[in-house]
């Protein structure tokens, strides 16, 4: 049904641009998320005392707390960054491609 349109989109330079941009962005964010997680794991594995160290002598809060909570927050922030750009810039580009094909 959409075969012709699919073919035209596939050859369009804007489509190639959209795919390249979005894929790159998605992989970078995935790498950041996994990277942060792996660093956290490596700390637990090799430097647990670092996570157990107090952030200041008169506070019972250890470095592990802001890091752990920070990891949770960064998961949320990274998804937010992706959604912001994908639902804005990428979707506008996408819509332009679709509009062109429909003409």
């Amino acid at each position: 049904m959409h075969d012709l349109a699919y073919k035209r989109i596939e050859q369009s330079p804007q489509f190639k641009e959209l795919v390249a941009k979005r894929e790159k962005f998605a992989w970078i964010l995935s790498a950041i998320m996994l990277g942060l997680y792996v660093v956290f794991i490596l700390l637990i594995a090799f430097q647990p005392q670092l996570l157990g160290a107090r952030i200041s002598p008169d506070s019972s809060v250890t470095w592990g707390i802001p890091m752990g909570v920070g990891l949770i927050v960064s998961a949320f922030v990274l998804t937010g960054i992706y959604v912001q750009r994908a639902n804005g810039e990428f979707d506008r580009l996408n819509q332009a491609i679709l509009d062109e094909v429909k003409q």
């Binding site: 998605a26 995935s30 996994l34 752990g68 949770i72 998961a75 990274l78």
Partner: peptide
């Protein structure tokens, strides 16, 4: 603290699901 580490393990899959 181990409880926090445990729950982070549950969460990190979600951004990846979104991106990919």
């Amino acid at each position: 603290y181990d409880g926090l580490i445990y729950s982070i393990g549950f969460l990190v899959g979600w951004p990846i699901i979104l991106f990919l």
